[in-house]
Simulated scan of single mutants.
Amino acid sequence: MPQPDPTARHVFVYGTLRSGGSNDISRFSPIPQRVGDGEIAGTLFDLGAYPGAVLGGEGRIKGEVYRIAPGLEVQLDVLEEVKPDGSGEYVRRELVVEVAGRSIACLVYEIHPSRIAGRSVIASGDWMARD
């Protein structure tokens, strides 16, 4: 039986990276392992072709948790336009997500606050079920 990769991390995806989304994370390599569904505290904004999450507050955002290898984390940073100085489109954060009774530390990509002005909120917190 293969041993787990000790450098693997987890990511919480809430938008186009979700299963069936336009950037479905399962298309990336190395292929991530789906751990389960989860929710985080935050507000989801509609940016047109994709959403952006602002973390915290009373709202809930629905998403999926995947175990990823370091090489995939680098690819996700590029896709999400993360910049070391925090000026990119998204900022990489880390928070704990409850999945099937387990607490899992996950990367979450939070939209830069400058990108949400005038954007509508997705009240359901579910990008895949938006109207």
Rank of each mutant, 00 (worst) to 15 (best):
K62V: 12
S19I: 13
D24E: 10
S124M: 10
E81D: 15
D126Y: 12
F45I: 09
D24Q: 12
A129H: 13
E80R: 00
S22M: 01
G57M: 13
L95Y: 11
G86P: 01
G88W: 08
L17P: 05
A53H: 14
R93C: 04
G20H: 08
V97C: 01
G56D: 12
G71E: 09
G125Y: 04
S26C: 11
Y90W: 02
R34C: 08
L17Y: 12
E64C: 09
A41I: 08
A69D: 08
W127P: 03
R102L: 01
R34D: 05
R60F: 08
V99N: 01
L76H: 06
D5F: 08
E110R: 05
Q3K: 15
V35A: 09
V35W: 02
L17N: 13
S103N: 04
I40N: 01
D85A: 05
G15K: 05
T7V: 12
G15Q: 00
S22L: 10
V99E: 06
M128L: 11
A117I: 15
I116G: 13
E94A: 06
A49E: 14
E73T: 13
L76R: 09
C106M: 12
R9C: 14
A100Y: 04
R18D: 01
A105R: 15
R93W: 02
G38W: 00
A105Y: 14
E39Q: 14
C106T: 04
T16K: 00
K83T: 15
R67I: 06
V13Q: 06
G88D: 02
E39M: 14
I104T: 07
R34L: 07
M1Q: 15
L95A: 08
R60E: 00
Q33R: 14
V97H: 07
K62P: 05
V11E: 07
A117K: 15
K83P: 13
S26W: 13
E64P: 00
K62D: 14
I25W: 03
R119A: 15
I68W: 00
I68S: 07
T43P: 01
Q3H: 15
P6C: 07
G48K: 04
Y109I: 02
S120E: 10
T43N: 00
H10N: 04
R119G: 14
I61V: 12
G86E: 04
T7D: 09
P70M: 08
G57H: 09
G59W: 14
G63R: 11
Y14F: 15
D24T: 10
I104Y: 07
E81I: 12
L47Q: 09
E110Y: 10
V65A: 02
D85V: 07
E73Q: 11
E73N: 08
A100D: 04
R60H: 05
S22V: 11
Q75N: 11
G125H: 05
K83H: 15
L95S: 10
G36D: 00
D46W: 06
E89L: 07
D24C: 06
L47D: 10
G38P: 03
S29D: 08
G63S: 07
T43L: 07
V82H: 01
Q3D: 15
I116L: 13
D37E: 01
G63H: 09
S114F: 01
A41M: 08
